[in-house]
Lab assay of single mutants.
Amino acid sequence: MQRVNMIMAESPGLITICLLGYLLSAECTVFLDHENANKILNRPKRYNSGKLEEFVQGNLERECMEEKCSFEEAREVFENTERTTEFWKQYVDGDQCESNPCLNGGSCKDDINSYECWCPFGFEGKNCELDVTCNIKNGRCEQFCKNSADNKVVCSCTEGYRLAENQKSCEPAVPFPCGRVSVSQTSKLTRAETVFPDVDYVNSTEAETILDNITQSTQSFNDFTRVVGGEDAKPGQFPWQVVLNGKVDAFCGGSIVNEKWIVTAAHCVETGVKITVVAGEHNIEETEHTEQKRNVIRIIPHHNYNAAINKYNHDIALLELDEPLVLNSYVTPICIADKEYTNIFLKFGSGYVSGWGRVFHKGRSALVLQYLRVPLVDRATCLRSTKFTIYNNMFCAGFHEGGRDSCQGDSGGPHVTEVEGTSFLTGIISWGEECAMKGKYGIYTKVSRYVNWIKEKTKLT
């Protein structure tokens, strides 16, 4: 034993070699072989497995989906700052455009905790909710729209109204504003409101030439003092309507412009014939205590009207009353817009006519005020429907199939267009061939041609 100890002390290297040989010859039971080890760690190889990531292109799944990435790591994937920024906006807080917040056709661009709407022409605001041009839906104005110097929408209202708090709607500024039905039992019968379409306001006024200088022999019209197929109006439903009495009662109609003036057809009036105007009328054979009678003290036909040349060209006249009318729910003026808007309103496509005229061709006159909704007829169809001249200051309205029309005794009465609950004068009943005849239409004086003249002559002093 002493000898062994001496050998170990003198030859430590020998001992180490012996131990190493023993270990190498022993069977290893701690580690699995290569094949079995792979069965336990069965993990798919990654895209760049075996390579240094710093030297390969980034992978979106590896960089940002398996674990949260930084902007720089995302930049490695896209290799483009702009594309990385677009991805980053949604990656950080989701897609803010998912709810489609942009209105009126706006395009949404996502941002971090926010979004941006790219608005089409005519709109602005956070969600493109603000109209900035009158060309689109009248700028959301209830009545009139004008573009300011910086191309912003400025709404306005006709006389007797003021802008509401929203700067879009119009509200009454006087007790009985024009064009409004205020009798409670008839307010439910107000005709369907007309909503502004998209309009090209630059070209809204037709490029028409008034044929002022045409000389033409007097034409022989049949029954051209021209509501057939209409309905009984309720008291106060058309408070701007008046009836004219002269040699015979209810020979023509008219509309209240203001307390002192009536507008009617020029062919209705004769110099030297006494005319009485009755406002607030409903049943011409009954006294309903809503009527107001006034005498006409002055007749002003349009300066281009000449019955000797043509009885229905420039067929418009103004009547001055001896005493002002007292405005109330049964006696209310009709609204008159400017030339541009009167023309736009007419193009809405349908209007209402009213009167006490004959209820059928050569038949009896109506006792109760009649009204009828009539569609506008395109000019080409209008011209083809008659052998008589249709001037540019006239328009056609009615039904091709016949059966409904204005008729004798309705002449001078109103053709009105309702705009968001307020009625505007767009025409004056003038003439036609018979009444409600198939293929024939009622012919009306186009008020847009005469609004400046009306307003100039009827100013209240």
Rank of each mutant, 00 (worst) to 15 (best):
Q2V: 13
R3S: 11
N5F: 10
M6N: 12
S11Q: 06
L19W: 08
Y22V: 05
L24F: 12
C28M: 04
T29F: 07
V30C: 05
K39P: 13
K39C: 03
L41W: 10
N42L: 08
N48T: 14
G50P: 10
L52T: 15
L52G: 09
V56K: 04
N59R: 11
L60R: 08
R62K: 09
S70Y: 08
S70T: 13
E72N: 15
E73D: 10
E73K: 07
R75Q: 06
V77I: 10
F78V: 15
N80L: 04
R83Q: 14
T84G: 08
F87A: 15
F87M: 15
Q90H: 13
Y91F: 09
G94D: 10
C97S: 01
E98S: 14
N100S: 12
C102R: 00
C102F: 00
G105T: 02
D111H: 08
I112H: 15
S114Y: 07
W118N: 01
C119Y: 00
C119M: 00
P120C: 02
F123W: 14
E124P: 02
G125K: 00
K126W: 05
N127M: 06
N127I: 05
C128Q: 01
C128G: 00
L130W: 07
C134S: 03
N138G: 05
R140G: 10
R140H: 09
E142P: 03
Q143R: 00
C145H: 02
V153P: 12
V153Q: 08
S156G: 07
G160N: 06
R162W: 06
E165G: 10
N166F: 02
P172Q: 07
V174Q: 09
P177I: 01
S184Q: 06
Q185G: 15
K188V: 09
K188N: 12
L189N: 13
E193F: 07
E193I: 15
T194V: 12
V195C: 06
P197V: 13
V199C: 06
V199F: 13
D200W: 10
D200T: 07
D200E: 09
V202N: 12
A207D: 08
T209E: 12
I210Y: 06
N213D: 06
I214F: 08
I214N: 08
I214V: 08
T215C: 04
T215I: 08
S220K: 13
R226H: 14
V227M: 12
V228Q: 13
G230K: 12
K234V: 13
K234T: 15
P235C: 03
Q237S: 07
Q241E: 03
V257G: 01
N258H: 04
N258W: 00
I262L: 03
T264A: 06
T264Q: 00
A265F: 02
H267I: 02
C268F: 01
C268N: 01
I275E: 02
V277Y: 00
V278D: 03
V278T: 13
G280I: 02
H282I: 08
I284Q: 07
E288F: 05
H289I: 08
H289A: 05
K293Q: 10
R294N: 01
N295I: 06
I297R: 10
H302N: 04
N304A: 09
Y305V: 02
Y305G: 02
Y305I: 02
A307S: 09
I309S: 07
N310S: 15
Y312T: 03
N313P: 03
N313I: 10
H314V: 03
D315F: 00
L319N: 01
L319W: 02
E323M: 11
E323S: 11
N328F: 00
Y330N: 04
V331I: 08
T332C: 05
D338N: 10
D338I: 03
N343Y: 03
I344K: 15
K347V: 03
G349T: 04
G351C: 03
G351E: 01
Y352H: 10
W356C: 03
G357S: 14
R358K: 14
H361E: 11
A366M: 08
L367D: 12
V368R: 13
R373P: 10
R373C: 03
V374Q: 04
L376K: 05
A380M: 09
C382Y: 02
C382R: 02
R384A: 12
S385A: 13
T386Y: 12
F388N: 10
F388E: 11
T389Q: 14
N393G: 14
C396W: 01
A397R: 02
R404P: 15
S406E: 15
C407Q: 04
Q408L: 14
D410T: 11
H415R: 00
H415C: 02
V416N: 03
V416P: 01
G421H: 06
F424H: 01
I428M: 05
W431A: 06
E434G: 08
C435G: 04
K438M: 07
K440L: 03
Y441V: 13
K446T: 03
K446E: 05
V447C: 03
V447E: 00
Y450L: 01
N452M: 06
W453C: 00
I454N: 01
E456G: 06
T458Q: 02
T461C: 09
